[in-house]
Design a protein around this nucleic acid. Structure first.
Lengths: 109, 109
DNA sequence: TAATAATATTCCTTTACAGGAATATTCCCG
DNA sequence: CGGGAATATTCCTGTAAAGGAATATTATTA
C-alpha cells in the first residue's frame, strides 16, 4: 500500500475537499471549493495540487476555470487494502462464534 | 471521518508496523518489531506510541516486555467511511451498465 | 489592447515531526 | 541489592509542510 493516499487525506482541509467533491457528485471549481469550505483561494489551489499529485482528483480546464472532480482509483486501492483487514476481523468474529458454540455445547452437557 | 487514522498511517514505517502486525496475526514485542523492520528501538517505540494514541494498536505489559497488537476499530471506521465511496463508484458502474443496455437496445432496432 | 476574473505560484514564517544519540525507567535474576 | 535486558523518553537537528500575503499567469471581454 502506498502512503501517498494517507498523507493526502491526513490534512483536514484536504479531507474536507474530498468529502465535498463526494457529496456534490460532480466537478467543482477552485473558487466554489474555496467558498464552500471557507478557504482562501491560494490555499485551495495548493491543497488541490496535492490531491492531484496523489491522484485523488483530476482537472478539466474550461477557459478560465478548472473543474476538479474525484478519482475513485486511490480509494478503491484503499478498499482493496482493507480487504485483508476485513478477513482478520471476520476471523475474530468466527472465533467468537466458535467460542460461543463451545459454550453452548458445554451447557448442554 | 477523523484525520488521525490517516496521519498515523501516512508515515511509511508506521504503515509497515501495522502490516507486520496484520501478517503475524498476533501480538509482537517492541524488540521483535524493531528487528523485523530494521528499525532502531527508540524509533519503534515512538512510532508505536503514535499508533497507540491513534487507537490502531493496543499494549499488554508482560514483565519487561510490551506486547503490541492491532486494533481493528479504526480500520473498520475507515471501511465504513469508504462505504460512501463504494456507492459512488457503483453508481458510475450502474450508469455504464445502463449505457451499455441502451446501446444494446438500439442495436436491436 | 486594457481591464478584469480565475487560478497558480512564490516568498516568508511558524510549526510539527522524523531520525540519531544518549539517557531514564522498569523489571527480572543471580 | 547490583547488573543487565527491554522499553520509553528526552534532547538535538534537519526538513517538510501549512497558512498568509503578494504576485504571476492565463483567459475573457469590452
Amino acid at each position: 500500500m502506498e502512503t501517498t493516499t494517507f498523507s493526502a487525506l491526513a490534512e483536514p482541509n484536504r479531507l474536507r475537499i474530498v468529502e465535498l467533491l463526494l457529496s456534490v457528485k460532480g466537478p467543482l471549481t477552485v473558487g466554489e471549493i474555496a467558498d464552500r469550505l471557507g478557504l482562501q483561494q491560494p490555499q485551495a489551489s495548493k491543497h488541490l495540487r496535492v490531491l492531484l499529485e496523489a491522484g485523488l482528483v483530476e482537472v478539466e480546464a474550461v477557459a478560465n476555470r478548472r473543474n476538479y472532480k474525484l478519482r475513485v482509483e486511490p480509494l478503491q486501492a484503499l478498499d482493496v487494502w482493507l480487504e485483508t483487514y476485513r478477513k482478520v476481523w471476520d476471523e475474530r468474529f468466527d472465533n467468537l462464534e466458535a467460542y460461543l458454540q463451545k459454550l453452548q455445547s458445554k451447557e448442554n452437557n
